[in-house]
Design a protein around this nucleic acid. Structure first.
Length: 475
DNA sequence: TTTTGAGTTGTTCGA
DNA sequence: GTCGAACAACTCAAA
């Protein structure tokens, strides 16, 4: 009887195109899958509430699949190094395999586990699988990590030959283990009181099957992606982000799928560029592990942020008085996701018009997004705030009214998520506070009662942000 | 080696 | 109404 190999799952909750799993199951070796709910108290960035929802359903799906194949997933809570070593000893495993992670605390866990396993003469190996490229391999000509996206992605495309390819492998043999496992339900990953996730079920199908379905659905829409992706009402983004974050599908699968079908389509190339941004953010976090905590540009530690709990709460609830922002924030709360264009506008309003520290926005998105990803979320917020790598120039301040008029010209998106504005004529949909009294009356709307007045006038907010940034330059 | 040009997602102003 | 320029500072690659 061959001794089993353990595969430690984290953010690669799939069975196909899984290099660590394929290697573990090679030559008919029995495989034990395990997932450790990390309860180490010194660990920052434990999964947020929406992430927990997705995690629950992904784990349930994969564990069902493994069960159907005659095995089971071992679920444990605690410190990964200790738990996995003890699982390995209990099961007589010859080795533990995993997929290399990017998050600093995950990488620390890998080192600790490797050391623990070595002490017990158990093998260990980390595999690629989450990204298209190994972030340690990509360097500019001067040998340093890239800090600008375009040269980074050019470099990646030039090196396409060394991009990780999709791996076809048959289902491994799963060990019929008697190892103890906690029950998924006992982890209480789903919301209860209140059950804010009740709309999630109708919007998402977490897991590998849902990911494959979303990918093939997107491939048909990809030709129009370039044109339509900026219009939230058209809803022609890929919606693959949570599947990619949890590894329900791999980035390599997504890249390959859009390559086959639409080799020459602008839309496919533009989508692959977005995969490139995911890759770039991971690259940044890998090389600059402080990114989630500290501004990339050190001078921003002196930025005159305003601690304004009321403004923050209004922003979180979708009550800023800017319809496009409020629509986005409510879409986020109700579905765990927000359209990319609207994310930029909502984020810009928080950090520029309201001068609230980007960390508060980062934290809220972390808790509410089903696709919350430490690398992308942190890099994105720093980009909007202007303190990140390859960040927006300081003078680039989104005007929430103009953005709404440009990208939701008929107000369909706004009306979907801010129904109290339903009867307002198109002319005032983006500026309800400017509507004449009789128009408001006809629309059954009282500003300040049915819908808030804007927290700050767009031009005043813009000026205040530019002044704050100018002040920073003088220091 | 040094210089030069270009760089995800914008807005405003003045011609 | 449309269009180009201006709005920094810095990274990277190519000339």
């Amino acid at each position: 009887m061959k001794s089993p190999v353990i595969v430690w799952l984290r953010q690669e909750l799939r069975l196909k195109d899984h290099p660590a799993l394929a290697a573990a199951g090679a030559n008919g070796r029995p495989v034990i899958l395990c997932f450790i709910r990390n309860t180490a108290t010194d660990r920052p960035w434990l999964p947020g509430a929406a992430s927990c929802w997705w995690l629950h359903h992904s784990l349930r799906e994969i564990s069902q699949k493994v069960q159907n194949a005659g095995g089971k997933i071992v679920l444990r809570s605690g410190n990964p190094a200790e738990e996995i070593t003890s699982i390995a000893i209990e099961s007589g495993a010859s080795a533990v395999y995993w997929t290399n992670a990017i998050e600093p605390s995950d990488r620390k866990d890998e080192l600790l586990l490797r050391a623990e396993l070595e002490k017990n003469a158990i093998g260990s190996e980390g595999f690629e699988g989450n990204l298209l490229f190994d972030p340690a391999e990509i360097k500019s000509q001067s040998g340093t990590p890239f800090r600008v996206f375009t040269p980074f992605w050019k470099n990646c495309l030039k090196a396409q030959a060394s991009m990780r390819a999709v791996q076809q492998s048959s289902m491994p043999v799963f060990s019929q283990t008697a190892l103890e496992s906690e029950s998924l339900d006992s982890w209480n990953l789903l919301p209860e009181r209140p059950n804010w996730g009740k709309q999630f079920d109708s919007v998402w199908q977490p897991g590998e099957d849902g990911g494959q379905a979303a990918l093939s659905n997107f491939v048909h829409r990809a030709p129009d992606y370039e044109q339509d992706r900026n219009y939230p009402a058209k809803d022609n983004t890929s919606r693959l982000s949570p599947y990619l974050h949890f590894g329900n599908i791999s980035a390599a699968q997504a890249f390959a799928a859009t390559n086959q079908q639409n080799l020459t389509s602008e839309g496919a190339l533009s989508f692959q560029r977005e995969l490139g941004w995911r890759e770039f953010c991971a690259h940044l976090l890998f090389h600059f592990p402080q990114m989630p905590e500290k501004s990339f540009r050190p001078e921003f530690s002196k930025f005159p942020w305003i601690e304004d709990d009321n403004a923050l709460a209004d922003w979180q609830k979708g009550c800023t008085g800017f319809p496009i922002v409020d629509a986005g924030m409510r879409q986020l709360w109700q579905t765990g996701w927000m359209h990319n264009r609207v994310r930029m506008v909502a984020a810009s309003v928080l950090v520029k018009h309201l001068l609230v520290h980007w960390k508060h926005g980062q934290q809220w998105f972390w808790d509410t997004l089903v696709d919350a990803d430490l690398a992308s979320n942190s890099a994105g917020w720093q980009w909007v705030a202007g303190c990140g790598a390859d960040a927006a120039p300081y003078f680039r301040v989104f005007n929430p009214v103009l953005q709404g008029q440009k990208f939701d010209p008929d107000g369909d998106y706004i009306k979907q998520w801010v129904p109290e504005l339903m009867d307002l004529p198109k002319k005032y949909l983006h500026t309800p506070w400017l509507a004449p009294a009789e128009v408001l009356k006809d629309a059954n709307l009282e500003i300040g009662k049915d819908y808030p007045a804007p927290l700050i006038q767009p031009d005043a907010g813009r000026k205040r942000a530019l002044d704050a940034l100018a002040q920073l330059k003088k220091l």
